[in-house]
Every structure is written in C-alpha cells, then in structure tokens.
Simulated scan of single mutants.
Amino acid sequence: MLAGEPADNSHLQAVTLPHLVVFTGSGISVESGIKTFRASDGLWEEHPVEKVATFDGFRDDPERVLDFYNQRREQIRRARPNAAHKALAALEQDGFTVSIITQNIDDLHERAGSKNVLHLHGEILKARSSVDARLRYPIKGDIRLGDVCDKGSQLRPDVVWFGESVPLFDQACTLASQADFFLVVGTSLAVMPAASLLSYVGVDTPCALVDPDADSLTPPGVLAINTTAGEGVPALVHQWRRQRSFALD
C-alpha cells in the first residue's frame, strides 16, 4: 500500500451483538409499587373484572370504568423504573439488540430508557376512540365522561380488555421468532394469547424465566431462575455485558 492511500478494510465485518427478546408481565413492575392483576390489596379487589375490564362493563357504566383507570393511571405516574427495567435499558445502550414485548400497560420500560417496546395489552397513558381503535391520543390527566375523539365518540383507555383482540400479537410472534435468547420475566404464562409466544421461539433458541415461582411456572426446555425481577435480571445483564454474549454460567 502506498503512503497516503486509505486502508482497505472491506474484509473486516462489523461485530453484531445478539438479539435479546424479553417478554415481561406484571411481576417486573410490582417492585416499582404497581399492584399485580390479582393482588388482594390492589385496585382490582373491589372491582369484578367483568365490570371494569370488558367493553360490556364500559357500556353499562362508563363512569365507573373511567374512574378505575384514572386511579391506576395516577398510581403508574407515581411509580419509578426499578433495577430490572434499568438493566434491560443498559444492555440496549451497550450495543445489544433488545426488543421488549410486555403485557404491562405502564411506561416503566420506556422511562428506564428502552427504545423498542411493544405493548401487547395497550398503554394506559393513552386514550382511544370507543368506535375507532386507530384514533389514539396521549393524555396528561384523566379521561372524563364527555371527552370525545375526532369522530365524536367517548374516549376510553387504550388498553385491551377481556374478550377483545390483541392487535399487536402477530408482530410479537415475529419478534419472538427472531430472538437469539428469549427471556421471560414476571409472568405466569397463563394469559392467552400472549402465553403462546414461547411456541414461536426457534427450537434451538435458549430461553429462561425469571420469577420467584419459576420452578412451578416454567415449561420444559426453559431455564427456571427462581428470584425476583429486580435481582435476576440485573445479574443476567451483568454477565451478558461482560461476556458480550448470552452464554449462561
């Protein structure tokens, strides 16, 4: 090579770090003070699911449903991302590809710094039209009776209620199939269709589940890590960042 000529680095390939797909449930947010779906001391205790988490319940008593979600929204605004949320964001910031599929309707993953978050069951900090699901609006306060969309219909929380379709499920299945490692955190794998995501993961793709009850929840072929999200996820991320891979000791 003559002096002053640029080096030919065409033979060098950029190092691509592996793709982590994380499937999170309410167990990752409970350490931030957000009650789980069935918590005996949570907002659900005095509200039957069919009254506040179905379209029929909303049609029969929209004020009660709106008030229920207004309370939840305020609880979520007061919450802060915990160590598990922050660890996943740090892994992404360190160059790993991290895609998060969450059943949670809070925004704690985003507030921690994660950029690629798919909310299967909607986002409580948004409202949507009750006649056209495509009309969505960010909200800063509460949703009240009389708040309407551009088509004049009452606004409702942008969450997926029981009996409604999960519009982003196909996108979640595609992400699951692209994983180099599939990590499940804080979910019982009991709510369908989300619980079936594992069936879309490649047969040779390693999978793990982090949960205090992982032994009783984990399907065959999935590594059970019996601990909280706040302990288990940062420990895994620390190891992966050090090794630059998803190998497990």
Score class of each variant (00 low, 15 high):
100 I>G: 04
108 L>G: 03
149 C>W: 02
233 V>T: 11
194 A>I: 00
56 D>S: 13
35 K>L: 02
19 H>A: 07
217 L>K: 03
225 I>A: 01
100 I>A: 00
97 T>I: 10
182 F>C: 05
119 H>N: 05
140 K>I: 00
240 W>Y: 06
55 F>V: 14
93 Q>F: 04
197 L>C: 09
14 A>E: 14
212 P>C: 07
204 D>W: 01
86 K>C: 03
216 S>P: 00
26 S>E: 09
131 V>Q: 14
138 P>M: 06
11 H>E: 12
128 R>W: 06
110 E>P: 00
248 L>Y: 12
106 D>C: 07
118 L>W: 08
91 L>R: 07
8 D>L: 06
69 Y>N: 01
176 A>M: 09
171 Q>D: 15
191 V>G: 06
148 V>N: 05
75 Q>T: 05
71 Q>P: 00
66 L>Y: 04
103 Q>A: 05
105 I>F: 08
96 F>D: 08
13 Q>M: 11
3 A>D: 13
50 E>F: 09
77 R>W: 12
188 S>E: 06
224 A>D: 08
85 H>T: 08
85 H>M: 02
159 V>K: 02
87 A>N: 03
121 H>F: 10
234 P>G: 04
132 D>Y: 02
74 E>K: 14
199 S>P: 00
113 G>K: 04
123 E>R: 15
28 I>P: 08
105 I>Y: 04
229 A>I: 05
246 F>P: 02
110 E>L: 11
182 F>S: 08
60 D>C: 00
60 D>M: 09
